[in-house]
Amino acid sequence: MKTNDNNFQRKVAPDKSARMLETIYGCKWSLTVYQLLDSGINRPGEMVRNVEGLTTKVLNQCLRKNIEFGILERIAYNEVPPRVEYKVTGFGGKFMRILDEIEKLQCEIEQDA
């Protein structure tokens, strides 16, 4: 007699990482912030000065989201005047490699269209 055992269960999309990708791509400045950090610009004032249209308020919201996801780390120095810098975490580096792969995929899609 043949049994009808299911070997596979329904695959579900990864909830947290999918939400993270959606949030990062939904934020119009996150990719720009990553680009700034990659080029050595890691202080908020310097970021605002280097990107036309980027405000301190919007930058702070963007940085806060990235810190909550564990992509970026905030480093506050005990100096006068106060100094704050941001850096990519180990997890953030992995996440950015995935974003690079998505960008490559997009280029392939555009070339085939």
Rank of each mutant, 00 (worst) to 15 (best):
M1A: 12
M1K: 09
T3V: 14
T3C: 04
T3P: 02
N6L: 12
N7V: 06
F8K: 13
F8L: 15
F8P: 01
Q9N: 08
Q9F: 10
Q9L: 08
R10H: 11
K11N: 09
V12L: 15
V12H: 14
V12D: 11
V12W: 15
A13T: 13
D15P: 06
D15Q: 10
D15L: 11
S17F: 05
A18F: 13
A18T: 15
R19S: 13
M20W: 05
E22Q: 14
T23R: 14
I24N: 00
Y25W: 12
G26E: 06
C27A: 13
K28L: 07
K28Q: 12
K28T: 10
W29S: 00
W29K: 00
S30M: 02
L31K: 01
L31R: 02
T32A: 08
V33T: 02
V33P: 00
Y34I: 03
Y34F: 15
Q35D: 07
L36I: 01
D38V: 06
D38N: 11
S39G: 07
S39H: 09
G40C: 12
G40A: 10
I41K: 02
N42R: 10
N42Y: 10
R43Q: 15
P44C: 08
M47L: 04
V48L: 03
R49N: 14
N50D: 07
E52P: 10
E52N: 15
E52V: 14
E52T: 15
G53S: 04
G53P: 04
L54C: 04
K57Y: 12
K57L: 14
K57E: 12
L59I: 01
L59M: 04
Q61P: 01
K65E: 07
N66C: 10
N66R: 09
I67S: 02
E68T: 03
E68C: 05
F69A: 05
F69R: 03
F69I: 01
G70N: 05
I71F: 06
I71M: 08
L72D: 00
E73P: 06
R74N: 07
I75N: 10
Y77F: 06
Y77C: 05
Y77L: 07
E79D: 09
E79Q: 09
V80Y: 14
V80I: 13
V84S: 05
V84Y: 06
E85D: 04
E85A: 02
E85P: 01
E85R: 03
Y86R: 01
Y86N: 00
Y86A: 00
K87A: 10
G92K: 02
G92N: 03
G93T: 02
K94M: 12
K94W: 10
F95P: 01
F95N: 01
F95Y: 15
M96P: 04
R97Y: 09
R97H: 09
R97T: 09
I98P: 01
D100V: 04
I102V: 13
E103V: 07
K104V: 08
Q106K: 15
Q106S: 08
C107T: 13
C107V: 12
E108W: 12
Q111R: 13
Q111I: 07
Q111V: 08
D112K: 14
D112A: 15
A113T: 14
A113I: 15
